[in-house]
Design a protein around this nucleic acid. Structure first.
Lengths: 200, 200
DNA sequence: CATTTCAGTCTACAACCGTTGACTGAAATA
DNA sequence: TATTTCAGTCAACGGTTGTAGACTGAAATG
């Protein structure tokens, strides 16, 4: 009943090792961020050698770029309601899949200018796609704020462990957030309730 | 017309030097985060010596704790509307004052577990203060999400430079955000518009 | 004036980092 | 089988970091 165990070929060995390196890198970059993750610690977890990582990926930076990704999203619909639902869908997707690559990018975003620029560009692209469906001069601000909300929600849940937010079911979280997001896509700006009269 | 220039006393010199160190530390921790800021670079900017920083503050960590702060907020009112306005006020305050200490804490939050815990605890305290004014089992989730929104807004504006969000006037930003925050304090969860019927 | 205190300077250490290059041995190739 | 290729190992490099400690000279103190 024993299947014949051929020794793995050279390309098989290489593929397996590369895969172990990538998995360990993804995990550690997501858990500790770019600076606190070392080539040596990745090599240890992947049960290989630091020098081999350099040979396969060139540099720590290149390895990071290989595993840290920020998903850019799909077309967003044409009415404000569709835009809101589309953005909520996008957030729900990011909450459901435990993409260590995304977490790696977000975790390193505040200390690595290149990562920050990548996240900023991704949200900026989202704004560009959605701004047409919204009217008003502040459409960019509104979509940008929805991006900020998504960012804060993911960070608060996955990286900070905020009470309530971390334990909530994704579907419930989205349902609670839905009115707020819809308010941002088709609502009017609301002055403070006790506001003094202002310039016309 | 020349005011007599007495050489500064020893305690004056010490106070001035300490102040320069603290200012440089605040600025660099806010700009580059904990890991990428070095004692030496702080000393250079403060025109002093790394060894002196150690003698005055004990360690890099202690210096960070001296300048990185996260403001905890005031009582929040008793009705959902008051809670919403109070939280918006709190966000407006953080957007108005360019508190390098807060930015230092936020910038380091995703890579320093101690900083993350401090931010988490501050938002958690906010939740505790506000949860009484809100009814429903998901009150904690709602307030937590408002905390996440504040977090995402500050990060998006001050640290990421999101289009629209970064250039907006604080007052306009708050006004646009207001309906969303109010929706979170007194709104009902909203199911998706195309939802199938669910269990009662 | 003699002594003490202490802000500020300088040098060095031990640890860690990313990265390099030489080496080994087995698999692939001819 | 003889030769080449290449995955994997090992030791070392130059640089940077936080930190410690000895030293200097002027201000404070008696």
């Amino acid at each position: 009943m024993a299947t014949e165990q051929r020794p793995p070929s050279r390309i098989e060995r290489r593929e397996r090792t590369q895969h172990r390196i990538l998995a360990a890198a993804r995990r550690q970059f997501a858990e500790s961020g770019y600076d606190r993750t070392t080539i040596r610690s990745i090599a240890t977890e992947a049960e290989t050698d630091p020098g081999l990582i350099m040979r396969y990926f060139g540099s720590k930076e290149a390895l990071f770029n290989e595993v840290a990704t920020i998903a850019s999203d799909e077309p967003l619909g044409e009415t404000p309601e569709q835009v809101a639902e589309s953005l909520l869908d996008s957030l729900a997707g990011k909450l459901a899949t435990d993409s260590a690559g995304t977490l790696a990018m977000l975790r390193s975003m505040l200390t690595r200018p290149e990562a920050a620029e990548e996240v900023r560009a991704a949200i900026s692209e989202q704004q560009r796609l959605a701004a047409d469906a919204l009217d008003g001069t502040d459409a960019g601000l509104r979509i940008g704020l929805i991006g900020a909300i998504s960012l804060g929600t993911i960070i608060g849940r996955e990286l900070l462990g905020l009470d309530g937010v971390a334990e909530a079911e994704p579907a419930e979280l989205i349902n609670v957030l839905r009115p707020a997001v819809h308010a941002l896509t088709y609502g009017e700006p609301m002055p403070p309730p006790t506001a003094q009269p202002q310039d016309p």
